[in-house]
Design a protein around this nucleic acid. Structure first.
Lengths: 204, 204
DNA sequence: CTCGTTATGTACCGATCGATACAGAACATT
DNA sequence: AATGTTCTGTATCGATCGGTACATAACGAG
């Protein structure tokens, strides 16, 4: 009934997501967004509202993708192996100029948190919960199989630890130039995960 | 020979440090700095130069204090026990409204990194190296004593892991409201540290 | 007390911030 | 092709950004 949009909203939102991912909220100006999306600001405003609103949408897009990974039943059913391979991917996906080099957007947002809406904070928190649940389910699988028996409390604490460790590694990966440190930290985490095996195959 | 400063430069710099610590570089305006230091901007500029320069000085003050901790010979000679008590302090110092709730300033700076000078980046990097060295020395002590024997490579990787884990926990501690997660992650790290003991006193 | 020097408060600078008014261009429907 | 609706480019808004000029106040040296 009227002129249609000359762009894909999802694609533009994705570009905006990368921009915010890289620059953070207050480190990204409207001009930056114009450049990275190729749209004029007026189109951005019409399609997504103000900067706050656009940021929130981008953040939610990021969260949805991250959650998809952790909510995947295969992740949980993979047990310890899922967790291990996730951590190993943290250092193998690093070298290229993949967006992953910008760390985790959720985590980056935490530091912008004073400038950012309550909704953004809630989004981060919900993502963190999903990650903890995902890790917990995977650990539960391992426990049920007898591979890494642990109490419910231990499982939760280990999941909390894993989220922290993952974030620590992704922060480190933003400090360009020290790929070795990322790999070293990753390897130790993998060893730690291995050490949770109840059957003491060997201490290393 | 002329009018003396009406303020302690060190004290003012400390206040500026807290402000940047909390708000980050681009999240802190000159007006914010005026409020938190009690000085007018002109005095700030006279004493410390521009915003960039003031930030760098504040960051270096933070680094110097952090490095003091890790360079302390007592930390290294304390071995595994030093490391353990450091991590436990991460969750015990949390509840109060101590500045620690703002996470680690070094780490916060990494995310402002696109906006920040090369010198700031170098400061963060140097601090990270000092922390890794500190952890390495402590682990070396434990290894030499036979408490937690490990190769040089293992020691370095474990140190890199510890820095990552610490950062992860401090990031989490910025997400107010989930003290439990901080404690859970901390407890697991402490267990991991314990698991490095060569003499298998017990697996848990 | 006088003078030279430095610190401080007011008032303001151009640049950039996020956001918008308006007019014209582009499309679907008829 | 005519019409009505929506999208988009230009040009601009007030607010705030970091930074500064200038006049005044405060102090030490003589």
């Amino acid at each position: 009934m009227a002129r249609p949009r000359a762009f894909s909203e999802e694609h533009v939102l994705e570009q905006a997501m990368y921009q915010f991912w890289r620059g953070g909220f207050c480190g990204t100006s409207i001009v930056d967004l114009e450049k990275s999306t190729g749209l004029s600001r007026i189109s951005l405003y019409n399609a997504f509202g103000g900067k706050d609103s656009l940021f929130l949408l981008a953040l939610q897009m990021y969260r949805d993708r991250a959650e998809t990974f952790f909510k995947d039943p295969e992740f949980a059913s993979g047990g310890l192996e899922s967790v291990r391979s996730l951590f190993e991917s943290l250092s193998t996906r690093l070298p290229k100029d993949a967006p992953e080099q910008y760390g985790c957007m959720m985590l980056n947002t935490i530091l912008d948190i004073d400038v950012v809406t309550d909704e953004a904070r809630a989004t981060v928190e919900s993502c963190r919960c999903t990650m903890i649940d995902g890790f917990s389910r995977a650990l539960k699988t391992a426990s049920d199989k007898g591979i890494a028996r642990a109490s419910r409390k231990e499982i939760r604490e280990r999941a909390e630890f894993l989220v922290g460790a993952m974030w620590g590694i992704r922060i480190t990966s933003r400090l360009k130039g020290d790929v070795a440190a990322v790999k070293g930290a990753t390897r130790t985490v993998v060893q730690v995960i291995g050490s949770w095996r109840t059957v003491p195959s060997s201490s290393r």
